[in-house]
Design a protein around this nucleic acid. Structure first.
Lengths: 228, 228
DNA sequence: TTTAATAGTGTATCATTTACACTTATCTTT
DNA sequence: AAAGATAAGTGTAAATGATACACTATTAAA
């Protein structure tokens, strides 16, 4: 047993951090929640929302906790992007950071938190210079999201419970960075029974008004074929 | 500065390990290099090839070093799969493990290392019970490989410098776990100029003999469109 | 009532993917 | 020497999936 302890103790230990790439969608733009550090070290530098992993915490749980602390939200979509472990990626100490892609419905976000955390929503295309390797993490998280958006129903995590097809399409366009043909897009939507048309109409986006749709997860699990 | 140190020291530190999912291909079978631990703790349990990250080492460098220690090979294809950090995933201590997918040309592997490391090559479909979450890592690494094999020229890392088209096809079949139509496969190969036919013939695989091909990386970079 | 702005709808073409079977070359066996 | 066995090598037609494309409907504001 002593031997066992010695086996582990002979190896170094590192801080392990979580960095959250928090995506939101508003006004047709894909946005990222970033934070300006208002304390040393590295005061004033823009960074991702992060925190350290605790002793008694799984990595995924740590991501959910950190995310909850910074957004006030529970039950959000969280997926690991990868581990970042360059020796000098953090000048203060050796820190291995695990990045998580987080998708939230921006309407559920309490904007007052931006005062408290000195954070704000920045368009993904106009990000400032950022802390260490955070730009790499963002690029990797975006690639992950681009890969998933067309094959898995993850985009609905970025939309309110009821949404118009134009919103859904604009979301895909913002994530993929390219225009999509409206008729082809709607044809594909029509093939998925779990994207349900409601009888409610949204009048905020147009004079004519647009039908609101809803994602039915139970129906999706019955026949999980997603393609958009 | 003291404040800075205190900032970091107030957070826990963890062992960080590397686990290598080492793939090889022989006799039409996709194989994994696994190791039976011949020392406590957990003597006799099958596990992936692993090691601990050092203080002065990037994660990726650690993966290459560990991989080199266990296979004797340098310049192998190594890609991160992800970080695994359940609290009790290692009963001996809190260890966060970063898994790496490793592709090697099994012909370059010195089989005598299997004696030294008490390791061996096991078919991916007939793996024994394994250490902690190593089965999860393997599943994730295989998924990564399946995703890449059709869109990037990674498979050549599992083949000798000269290979027949049947070998290449069988490799794809082993990784994807499904049969592929020979004529369609060869049609696609024919569209990629960087898969070059040599005038050499392999007579070991058939009576007739088959032309040997070669992957030309320089040519690939000139026009990097891969689809198989 | 005219204008402006977004919602909503179907078809034809093109490109890609799939299915499919026989001949050739060589070694082995009889 | 002939027959048999084994893997290599080759092209076309049908089906499926992806893309391009333009007008009408509805409502609020001017």
């Amino acid at each position: 047993m002593d031997k066992l302890k010695h086996f582990y103790n002979s190896h170094p230990r590192f801080h392990v951090a979580i960095d959250c790439i928090v995506f939101g969608f508003r006004n047709g733009e894909l946005k990222l929640l970033i934070q300006q550090r208002n304390f040393e070290p590295f005061q004033g530098v823009w960074s991702l929302m992060g925190g350290f992993v605790r002793e008694d915490e799984d990595l995924d749980d740590a991501a959910r906790r950190v995310c909850n602390e910074l957004t006030g939200l529970k039950d959000v979509y969280v997926r690991q992007v990868g581990a970042y472990g360059k020796v000098d990626r953090d000048p203060g100490a050796r820190v291995v950071s695990v990045a998580y892609c987080v998708l939230i419905d921006i309407d559920r976000y309490n904007e007052q938190l931006n005062m408290i955390n000195s954070s704000y929503w920045e368009n993904i295309n106009t990000l400032p210079e950022m802390f260490f390797d955070h730009k790499d993490m963002i690029a990797d998280a975006l690639k992950l999201l681009q890969r998933k958006i067309s094959r898995e129903p993850v985009g609905f995590n970025l939309l309110p419970p009821l949404f118009t097809l134009t919103q859904l399409q604009t979301l895909h366009e913002a994530i993929l960075g390219e225009r999509i043909d409206k008729r082809n897009f709607r044809k594909r939507v029509g093939e998925m029974a779990f994207i349900e048309k409601t009888d409610q109409i949204d009048k905020t986006g147009s004079r004519k008004g647009a039908y609101l749709y809803r994602f039915n997860n139970k129906e999706y699990r019955r026949n999980p074929d997603f393609k958009l």
